[in-house]
Amino acid sequence: MDIAVEGLSVAYAGRAVVSGVHLIAAAGEIAGLVGPNGSGKSSVLRTVYRHLRPAAGRVLVDGRDVWDLTPVQAARRVAALPQERTSDFELTVGDIVMMGRTPYKGPFSGEDATDRAVVAGVLERVGMGDARNRPFSALSGGERQRVLLARALAQDPEVLVLDEPTNHLDVLHQVELLALLREQRRTTLVSLHDLNAAASVCDRLHVLHRGRVVASGAPREVLTPELLREVFGVRAAVLDHPLTGDPLIAFDHHAPSPLTRGATP
């Protein structure tokens, strides 16, 4: 199942934050959204999982506009891990993940053996298999992130939408989460601040800057020193990763930051 965002524009309080965005994720492909803070990444993703209605343009999932689907139809196709955190702190981990089964339940039907098996399976896959009965409120930030990913996977979606999924994760769990995304081979849209992680996990990158897509393509084609300087304001070299062969971005941490250049001490 593929995703196509066509001519997307988003506005808040009459101010355009995304204008004329076109991007795609082919079936089974991981497409990354990268860009500076405020470039519009989260706004684009919110339109895909129907949290924010676009001012113009369309979001197509397998050729159908997500806004023409019923909520249940949309939830069976698209699952999201947004940046906004759940407020269901009194629930257990199992309760949180079981919410992912809601699109498959009738109004008065309870959980069944299939639901329980799905929940147990996705918790194992995110490394939280022994936490089902723990209070969600007792978890660390990284553990909560993994539980919320499990909830998205419990929906058994055809499309995953992830907004900064590695936030709050230590290095080991970042690596494990990105490996899990690769193993899934579900059509995925993911925003990432870590450009090296994006270069490693994504088949395609879309670079947003000031609400517009300024570059799209394979990571090696997109992440050039020129683009990194113009969009992110940093001096960097793009090398080959010695272990994986992926593009590896080496930043010049001695160069003045655009935020501090010219500032008086």
Rank of each mutant, 00 (worst) to 15 (best):
P157G: 08
E176W: 05
A131F: 14
F136E: 02
R151I: 01
P135F: 00
E143H: 00
V147H: 01
T166E: 02
D156I: 03
G127A: 10
R132F: 03
V147F: 12
L160N: 15
G127W: 13
G127M: 06
E143T: 01
D156T: 11
D130G: 04
V171D: 05
S137G: 13
P165R: 00
A150H: 04
L148F: 00
L139N: 00
F136H: 07
R144H: 06
D170M: 04
A138T: 10
L162F: 11
G141K: 04
D170Y: 00
R146G: 05
V171P: 04
G141Y: 00
V171R: 10
V159Y: 07
E124Y: 07
G141S: 10
A138G: 13
A154F: 15
E176K: 11
A131H: 15
P135R: 07
S140W: 09
T166L: 08
D156L: 14
V171S: 06
S137D: 10
H173A: 08
E176S: 14
L139K: 02
R144N: 07
G127L: 05
G127F: 14
R146L: 15
E143P: 03
D163Q: 10
L149M: 15
H173G: 07
V159T: 07
E164H: 00
Q174N: 07
P165H: 05
V161E: 11
D130A: 15
G141C: 07
F136N: 06
P157C: 11
E124C: 11
L162G: 08
S140K: 11
L148Q: 14
H168F: 10
L177T: 13
P157Y: 06
R134Y: 10
L153F: 04
Q155D: 14
V161G: 14
V161W: 12
A150K: 09
V161K: 06
P165L: 04
G127E: 00
H168A: 12
E164S: 00
A150D: 06
A154C: 09
L148D: 09
P165I: 00
A150W: 00
S140R: 06
L172W: 13
V175R: 14
R134Q: 13
R132M: 12
D130K: 14
D130R: 12
R151T: 12
A152G: 08
P135L: 11
L160K: 10
A131R: 11
N133I: 06
L162N: 09
G142T: 08
P157L: 13
A138Q: 13
R151F: 03
L160I: 14
M128L: 13
R132C: 08
Q155Y: 03
N133E: 15
D156P: 09
P165N: 05
F136S: 04
L153A: 05
F136K: 03
G142E: 05
R125K: 15
L172M: 08
E124D: 15
P165Y: 00
R144Y: 12
E143K: 10
D130F: 09
Q155H: 14
V175A: 15
V159P: 14
L139D: 06
R146W: 02
D156N: 15
L160T: 11
G129S: 10
R125T: 03
D163G: 03
G129T: 02
A152D: 04
F136T: 05
T166F: 01
G142H: 02
D170K: 05
E143N: 06
A131Q: 15
G127S: 12
L162R: 11
D130N: 14
T166Q: 02
E158H: 12
L160G: 11
V161I: 13
V159M: 03
L160Y: 08
N167K: 05
V147E: 09
